[in-house]
């Protein structure tokens, strides 16, 4: 056949030996993680999903046993989830409470830690000392010490009279909005304590900004305010997302969280009604809500793709489409040629 289209797009570049070796070494370095993830991450995830859907039986001999496949009630898989959502009196309110308070406190924590980080990044005396104090929460906030402190009066700031502030806010905001805001003020110290790691992340990001950028802006006559908006903030933007995610995860996995308490309760109680399957269902709903929260913040702070890159991709797509069309036409021509004009044999 003379005019068969050339096999342009079938040519594949064979990967070189070096590349192959490099890929292999990369996998080799990650082997510990791959094994660990398979055993300690992927397997438990699927098992817990299975538990929450199929249910478990607790046996004094075998311990926790998942319901075997042939005994699953296939039409009633969502049972535990329905139970958690519609029959548990504590779960939904706690979840709602968690959602609202997280949505309120995450921006506060992030903005606060950004301000502190910028202050700590300036030329001040006793920088090391201040940094030492501000990183201190990293140590304390993760432990049960925090719950102990919040139990006793040590974490409410007796210096500031929060009562008047909360009263003032309560008077002009609707109660649904006022509660999280007032709780923000009463838990001010706790919230400040959450900002240890975000401060740390922001400082190390601030250190990485090239000072020549500031110098150039200075020479061009930019004020400090303009420099903040045009240089500092864009540089910090990815870190803002990182810190939001970190803070959400931290708040969600904290011992102080009431939902965690509920899940643990269900886990330990081990009754027929509220057992491991129930706890697993709860944890899954909670996980979905948490991922949604992370997703909301990710949508807000995701760095948008470069405009030119976007355009380039668009053109790329268009070209590919056209090429496919051309190919299609060529193939059709060939087909028709075959069907209607028998090739003349010489």
């Amino acid at each position: 056949m003379r005019n068969r289209p050339a096999k342009v797009n079938k040519i594949r570049v064979k990967r070189g030996k070096l590349e192959k070796r490099e890929a292999m070494m990369g996998v080799l370095f990650c082997v510990p993680w791959i094994i660990g993830a398979a055993v300690f991450l992927v397997y438990p995830i699927f098992t817990s999903l299975y538990y929450s859907l199929a249910g478990v039986t607790v046996d004094s001999v075998n311990g926790i046993m998942a319901t075997p496949l042939n005994q699953i009630q296939w039409n009633n898989l969502q049972e535990k989830y329905v139970q958690v959502i519609s029959h548990d009196q504590n779960f939904l309110p706690a979840l709602l409470d968690y959602l609202v308070s997280t949505l309120v406190s995450v921006p506060v924590i992030v903005v606060f830690s950004m301000i502190i980080a910028m202050m700590l990044n300036q030329k001040i005396r006793g920088k090391g000392f201040f940094r030492m104090i501000f990183f201190l929460p990293v140590i304390i906030v993760s432990g049960p010490l925090l719950s102990l402190l919040s139990e006793s009066s040590a974490n409410t700031l007796s210096v500031v009279d929060t009562q008047t502030i909360t009263g003032a806010i309560g008077s002009f905001l609707p109660p649904a909005l006022a509660t999280p805001v007032t709780s923000l003020f009463t838990n001010m110290v706790t919230i400040l304590w959450y900002s240890g790691v975000p401060i740390l992340i922001f400082i190390s990001a601030l250190q990485k900004i090239d000072t020549s950028q500031y110098e150039a802006a200075y020479v061009d006559g930019a004020s400090a305010w303009e420099m903040f908006w045009k240089i500092t903030l864009p540089a910090l933007k990815p870190m803002i997302l990182l810190n939001c995610v970190y803070t959400i995860v931290f708040i969600s996995s904290n011992d102080q969280n009431s939902i965690i308490g509920l899940i643990k309760q269900a886990m330990i109680s081990g009754t027929d009604e509220k057992g491991y399957d129930y706890a697993a269902a709860m944890a899954w709903i909670y996980a979905i809500v948490e991922v949604l929260l992370v997703g909301i913040f990710a949508l807000i702070f995701m760095t948008r793709r470069d405009k030119y890159e976007k355009q380039g991709k668009k053109i790329d797509r268009q070209m590919r489409r056209e090429r496919r069309k051309v190919l299609h036409i060529q193939r059709r021509q060939a087909r028709h040629a075959k069907r209607y004009h028998r090739p003349t044999v010489r």
């Binding site: 990369g26 993830a37 996980a287």
Partner: peptide
């Protein structure tokens, strides 16, 4: 190193970070 599946690994690492520990606690115990 650049290798195939690197993106998957990073995604799983982030997932492990975000997922509450309570999801995997009991199966891990088992």
């Amino acid at each position: 190193f650049k290798f195939r599946g690197r993106g998957v690994i990073i995604g799983l690492i982030v997932l492990a970070f975000v997922l509450p520990r309570q999801v995997t606690m009991i199966p891990t115990y088992g």
